[in-house]
Design a protein around this nucleic acid. Structure first.
Lengths: 207, 207, 207, 207
DNA sequence: AATGAATGAGCGTTCATTCAT
DNA sequence: TATGAATGAACGCTCATTCAT
């Protein structure tokens, strides 16, 4: 799979510029996760990145460009993760499905993910690009699930696999606000994971 | 259950003032849902309500007071809805659980709810009051689920009921971003509802 | 001496209105002394007077009118005080001059006076009416001093008496910021009074 | 004596920024003297300085920081003046005391001083920083007077010198509102100066 | 590449004032 | 007389963006 993100940053052929862009995008993500999109300001990003506002605007002429590039970067990192999951071919298909669920739930429990996605969901209702990124990420997530479903039950038709994957995804993502990092029911995380596994396999076997 | 929300608005016992406050809170909700908290400004609310900024500030001295009152109002309306559900005593317990699921999923598919809650989730990571409202609303939602679970399986211990209710809630709320109003998988709404019912009852009966 | 202050308040023939105006003017003075002209707002005066802003504006259409009436009231009360001082005919002229000095210095040490006059001095540089009131009050004060000087040394020409009175007034008023109520050199108040008496009598006798 | 005022302005080592800050502080002082603290607004200062509000806020993030820096600047200029007076070692001690009085009275007669100090006195009753500046300036002024008193009469105890200096200061500062620039008794300025000299020396020699 | 300086729009809020009842 | 409601201007301040160097 080719991975080329169209950078909105100032075209630069120097290493310094490239690493600066990396610094900026990380700073942007940090602020976004920490303070939310509301308080994602060019000033804060510049401060976090240790550069001046003027210089930040040299690399990213608009806040929108910066934000979209930051989303791209997150998308890329999830692409990587999902690729890794697909490549691991250990154990039985059921075990691999359980492993995926475990991975997703553990990820959703990290402070970054717990804060990042609700922010993205909210934004996707107003910003078409955020919406697009959301669809990309979840489409990729579902593809992984679909592949695993196909291994468990190859005979299911496409539509059923899609719907099962969508249902699984809803259940897991919905846990973010309740058992995510720092959330009031964080202690029920493992039980949720167990219920999800049980419930998913059951749904799968009754189709 | 006593339900009296302490209004942060200008104290007024006149009809004009009362209906203005209602208009304002509706306007605030409209802007919040339409544009997100980001763009919920006093000026936009005033415009939406058809009044001047000065007049808006006459009723709500601070944006925070207005916002919190708006959240309270939404909370109240959900309290009402949940009470109604608890009072309807038709059919079998299983049917009533299915009805609740149907209600929740239909609600999540309305344009307001689809946009309102992700905004609230995102906000709750940064604003303590939003966090409090979220916990209130979902605590009430889970209580309704718990009560219905208790009707279906009275012998379950409290902890199990709580965890089942939490799991159900995660699954349903997680649908918002995928099959909510205008979302790309809206067409799978009914199938999601069906899967949820089947899955929930199965989990219930295997405890 | 005729004392009729041209009231800028709503003309009213009812006792209720008259007493309300009194309440308002007292409230205005309290706020002025407490918070300074900077923070003398119609809202604060209304609150202090226990009425609504609307009603305050019924009595005083403009803040300026209210403020000027308040100044008039203070002016009247000083007229009264000075009249009293002139009427007391006890002791020797020197003793009476010392008494006046004592009175002025004690007055300047009251919390109200300590705060009122600097506010008036500052204002008089920008508000012609404040300037006029200042001149009236100090002209009256100097007249009292002049009269006492005339008793001590009737042979002095008018000009010399005026200048002596002006000098005395400068010295005494200048104490406000240093030995007024709550000021850092308040403890030197008596010594200042003593120096003033000694100095004034000396100047008087060497003319 | 080390004299370094901690600037609250944007840190800058460029000439442009430095001169801008100077312009801003002068503009602030002009507005303060011209219109009073009441009307010292960021907009008016920006207008007076010939820059935009945004740019003013670039240098001074808050009005308070600007105002305090402006007060510091005035304090510094008085420190300079007082130092100069202390360094001039001409004539007899009595003549130097007379010179100081002449300087102070002439200064009080300048339009800026006539308006600046009453504003500061009024403010000091409500603003702690204004109070602090007032105490600094007058403490320095009294020190100069004390030093000259000590030259004239070295045998006086500290307390007496302090009280004499305080008394002199009251007398002189009190002239501001009466013989300051544009005041109604400005024509008596010289006579006041003469009386002050005579009176002060007399008090001094009778201790 | 990077800085400091500058702009102009918009924000939440306060205020004097007006008006209908 | 008195109230609550409403207006519009101004306030201090923040922000994305631009520009000269």
């Amino acid at each position: 799979m080719k991975k080329r993100t169209a950078s909105r940053a100032k075209k630069t052929s120097f290493n310094k510029g490239q690493s600066r862009i990396k610094t900026i995008l990380e700073a942007a993500r940090d602020v976004f996760v920490d303070k939310g999109y509301n308080k994602l300001t060019m000033r804060k990003v510049a401060l976090q990145a240790g550069i001046t506002v003027g210089n930040l605007n040299y690399y990213y002429q608009t806040k929108e460009a910066l934000f979209h590039d930051m989303l791209d970067q997150v998308w890329e990192s999830y692409q990587c993760e999902f690729d890794k999951v697909l490549e691991t071919s250990s154990k039985t298909p059921e075990e691999r499905l359980s492993s995926l669920i475990a991975y997703l739930i553990q990820d959703l429990n990290t402070p970054e993910t717990t804060k990042f996605f609700p922010e993205l969901w909210a934004l996707s209702n107003h910003d078409p690009y955020a919406q697009k990124m959301m669809e990309q990420i979840y489409s990729a997530e579902r593809q992984v699930i679909i592949d695993l479903i196909a291994e468990v039950k190859p005979e299911l038709d496409e539509n059923t696999k899609n719907e099962l994957a969508l249902y699984f995804s809803c259940t897991i993502e919905g846990m973010t606000m309740f058992v995510g990092s720092g959330k009031s029911h964080e202690s029920s995380l493992k039980m949720m994971q167990q219920m999800a596994c049980e419930s998913f396999l059951n749904l799968l076997h009754t189709r």
